[in-house]
Nucleic acid binder design. Structure first.
Length: 425
RNA sequence: GGAAGAAUGGCAGAGCUGGUUUAUUGCACCGGUCUUGAAAACCGGCGUACCUGAAAGGGUACCUGGGGUUCGAAUCCCUAUUCUUCCGCCA
């Protein structure tokens, strides 16, 4: 949720940013509506506070009269307070109504893109921030896509998942299962070695948490929901891990707070279809190691770059061909101010697969969940939050299988062998 | 699942027979006195959000969340949530 102060004081920057996102003019006009609603809110509060002050004073006088034994003089004052109370009620209702309307409008506005974000509507307009300048792996003639490799080596099965649950819920088996576990351990070890504290969070969250990181109301339809208990299955570890600091005030010295967590992720992916959903390209349940940072506003962009480097390191170590994109305004998520996407090249499918997304949300999430730090001047200020996948498993597995296939098996990257215990599938 | 009790400021912990209450006190923290320095002792300060104001200041709300009674509620009533203890069930 955008800070109302930013809308009031930096309106030009907001408008410019929204143009980069290609928002319709009606969305931009909302800014003025919000400002005038906020003006109204202020003036209503001024009268409300004055009315309350008057009743408070009268009540005190009534108390004093009772004590002085002048109960007979009380009636008139009581009537006055009763009249004030009517007024208070009206003003309170109005005040709440305006506040709710402002909140509702603020919730519907996306974050303001960072100045480096390119204008654009579609993924094609994303900027290649770092291209792959080495050669792609050359596969043998009978190279297979990962879903066929899975069958050939009995690594995972989507049809068994259908039997148990439905489409998009893979069942990993044998070396396929071990490979999952190896990747998770590898990613977690890399993150903890880089100073991220490991967290194992719950996989279901309440609506406050879903709202805190911005999944609600924006992505309600993308989450699995347990109606009976009013809980959501997490679409990413970002949700529980960031919400550990919901409504917290942390000392400035404790920044940055660096956390990592492995969780399965659940996504309904409503509306997806076609070739993109083949194999592990798009599934409803996948494993992911996430990194989350709570940072001082002055340092959040340096931190973003160090997170990008961390993810790059992982892909280097896995020896996968990758590139980094700086997302354009139109392709960037609702909450983000700047996002770098990582894509790995799948040699057998001949296409790039998104395996990580690293973003700075600035104060957008922090404002929604009131996550603050106590500054050296003693004031509480909104922190910045950042997160990134490091990494999402299913597509890494897909590209690993495809890129590393040879005529006599699939080669496991060197760094993973101590986790898998085998060097070839 | 059943029964009883509890939820107060960074922490501990009063108030809870309704009326000089943001709230006794202790610890922590900050400033000062003393000291060569530190500790101790003593003195002073010490919540958050919003409104108003150039500022100093003034005002309002907040004692888990929501609702109610009352001229007036931390204090009474209802409700939700969480925690503790006991009983039941159980990986």
């Amino acid at each position: 949720m955008l800070e109302i102060g930013i809308i009031r004081n930096q309106k030009e920057r907001v408008v410019e940013g929204y143009h980069k996102r290609n928002l319709p003019e009606t969305a931009i006009q909302e800014l003025d509506v919000i400002i005038s609603l906020d003006d109204e809110r202020k003036s209503v509060q001024t009268s409300l506070d004055a009315t309350l002050a008057e009743s408070n004073a009268l009540s005190k006088e009534i108390g004093d009269l009772f004590k002085a034994g002048k109960a007979n003089e009380v009636a008139e004052k009581k009537e006055k307070v009763a009249a004030l109370k009517e007024m208070t009620k009206e003003l309170e209702t109005k005040h709440k109504e305006i506040k709710d309307r402002i909140e509702e409008k603020l919730l519907s506005l996306p974050n303001v893109p960072h100045s480096s974000v390119p204008k654009g509507k579609t993924p094609e307009e994303n900027e290649v921030f770092k291209a792959w300048d080495k050669s792609f792996p050359s596969l043998h003639a009978d190279a297979l896509p990962h879903w066929e490799l899975a069958e050939k080596y009995d690594l995972f099965s989507l049809s068994l998942g259908v039997q148990l649950t439905g489409s998009g819920f893979p069942v990993y088996k044998g070396k396929g299962a071990k490979l999952q576990r190896a990747l998770i351990s590898f990613f977690l070890d890399e993150a903890t070695n880089a100073g991220f504290q490991e967290i194992i969070p719950p996989l279901l969250v309440n609506r406050h948490s879903a709202r805190g990181t911005g999944q609600l109301p924006d992505k309600e339809g993308q989450m699995y929901y347990c109606e009976k208990d009013d809980l959501y299955l997490i679409p990413t570890a970002e949700v529980p891990v960031t919400n550990l600091y919901r409504e917290a005030v942390v000392p400035v010295e404790s920044l940055p707070i660096k956390m990592t967590g492995y969780t399965p992720c659940f996504r309904r992916e409503a509306g997806s279809y076609g070739a993109d959903v083949k194999g592990l390209n798009r599934v409803h349940q996948f494993d992911k190691v996430e990194i989350v940072v709570i940072e001082h506003p002055d340092k959040s962009y340096d931190t973003l770059m160090s997170m990008v480097q961390h993810v790059e390191g992982l892909l280097e170590k896995l020896e996968l061909p990758y590139r980094i994109l700086r997302l354009c305004g139109g392709d960037m998520g609702f909450n983000s101010a700047l996002t770098f996407d990582f894509e790995v090249f799948s040699a057998a499918q001949q296409k790039w697969l998104e395996v990580s997304s690293v973003s700075n949300f600035e104060s957008f999430q922090a404002n929604r969940m009131t996550l603050r730090y106590k500054d050296t001047d003693g004031k509480n200020k909104l922190a910045h939050t950042l997160n990134g996948s490091a990494l999402a498993l299913a597509r890494i597995v897909a590209s690993l299988l495809e890129n590393n296939q040879t005529t006599d098996g699939i080669v496991i990257p060197e760094v993973l062998r101590r986790y898998t215990g085998f060097d070839k599938i």
